[in-house]
Amino acid sequence: MSTQPLPPSAVQTSPGLARTRHILGLVVTHGLLLTGAAFILLPFVWMLATSIKPPDEVFTATFSLWPKRFYGVENYSYALTAAPLLRFALNGAILCGGILIIQLLVAIPCAYALAKLRFPGRDVLFVLVLLGLAVPVQVPALPLYIGLANLGLLNTYFSMMVPFFLSVFAIFLLRQFFKSFPDDIIHAARLDGMSEFEIVWRVVTPSAWPAIAAFSVFSIVAHWNDLYWPLIVITDASLAPPPLGMMFFANAETGSNYGALTAAATILTAPLVITFLFARRQFIQGITMTGVK
């Protein structure tokens, strides 16, 4: 029962126009996304391309991606023999594994206690945890370095891991998760005669699996790629994790053996990237959960 005239646009939209607009929208969207994707992929593609090129082709600086002469075997074997790249990767794995295990062993009971138990000092501890969230590792680095130097612990796996044994972030994240765990189940477990220790590890922890997985992704990505702290405490190349190893390798390589340099970069980037490609969902979920809190 309206007396208003139809809006002018009603007359203008024809089926052809609608389809044109739809297609135009798709072209613009994918155009923008693909341009961005090209920018993102550029270093990855160039890394792979250069790592299989012989030096003379690298120096001619052409755009060709595939080399005229396949030189991959030489580059990769040179990179592997010139520097202990696999050792760097192993160090990275030891570093990430050691840190993660201790982080979880420390954080899970603490998070449970903060979430579900009443004990003196709980609130103080939680405030300290919140404050700790704001302190990046670069801040206590100096005193920790002096302490480790005085104890003669520099250049050890331990020195590389110790600042990260406590993850206030893990405590914070898991506490949020445990808070929503039903009290009734804990009470039932107590009535069934379980000790608190068993409740933590056999009842509560399995329920927090998504949070633990998310945190693990976050922790591994962070420490595999961390340069700052290893750069400070490690001078022995045989202990270097991937980023530091890469730096050693780049410095040692006289300037422009780009084939070997990109081969090394490929080898050290590959483990995490390949894991990511296979467990993309978990990675992205992990970052979302830890990122948004």
């Binding site: 139809l6 809006p7 009603a10 939209t13």
Partner: peptide, 8 residues
């Protein structure tokens, strides 16, 4: 062929 807001 009208879009939602054009359909009154």
């Amino acid at each position: 062929h009208l879009r939602p807001h054009e359909r009154r």
